[in-house]
């Protein structure tokens, strides 16, 4: 029963934090709300029986990826006028169209989801099981992920290096 309460609490935190993150004018404030949302999603992972995924969510999403955002926002040095411009862009006439389209898609999704039954979890899937599957039948996926990460590394180095060279 405790798990169920915790699940709904974490879901509420995740949804509220994400909505706040999407509507902030200041990028750092939005980022901190986004970190709260990711931590809440990690709690959901833990409750539905995926402790290894919860740990990865905290270490990689809330840790590494969000730190990248923080570094880039600090390098850009946006300041107060950036906040004022963001507020000017967040007018209802700008977001009403996208909101209507998102609501239509959300309605469709909720209608389809309502037909699904069954429990969310039938037990904990341990890190050992995940590792056995990862380096057994899914070893090709590991290789593909490593190639993808290498491409990301080379691409970001190329883009970032040119940006720094021309400035200095």
């Amino acid at each position: 029963m405790l798990e169920v309460t915790l699940f709904y609490l974490a879901s509420a935190v995740a949804l509220v934090a994400t909505i706040l993150a999407m509507t902030r004018a200041n990028a750092i404030h939005a980022l901190i709300y986004l970190i709260v949302s990711l931590l809440a999603v990690a709690v959901i992972f833990f409750i539905i029986g995926a402790p290894f995924a919860a740990a990865l969510e905290i270490v990689i999403y809330a840790g590494a990826i969000m730190v990248l955002f923080v570094f880039v926002i600090m390098m850009l040095n946006l300041g107060e006028e950036g906040d004022a411009r963001e507020r000017q862009w967040l007018q209802p006439r700008i977001w009403s169209g996208p909101a209507a389209l998102s609501l239509v898609l959300l309605g469709e999704l909720l209608y389809l989801m309502s037909t699904i039954t069954g429990p969310a979890s039938i037990g904990v899937v341990s890190a050992k099981t995940v590792g056995m599957a990862l380096f057994g039948p899914y070893v090709l996926a590991v290789e593909l992920a490593s190639m993808l990460l290498l491409a990301g590394l080379v691409g970001s180095y190329h883009l970032g290096r040119r940006a720094l060279e021309r400035e200095g």
Binding site: M1, E3, V4, F7, Y8, S11, A14, L15, T18, I19, A21, M22, S37, V41, I44, I47, I48, G49, L90, I94, W95, G97, P98, A99, L101, S102, L103, L105, L106, L109, L110, M113, S114, T115, I116, T117, G118, P119, A120, S121
Partner: peptide, 25 residues
């Protein structure tokens, strides 16, 4: 556990639609 699968998927679709709204606006 008593958490139904469709509630987890509901949270997931709500998060997805919030993200898509942010992407568009």
């Amino acid at each position: 556990l008593a958490v139904p699968l469709n509630h987890v998927l509901l949270v997931s679709s709500l998060l997805f639609c919030i993200g898509m709204l942010g992407l568009m606006m």
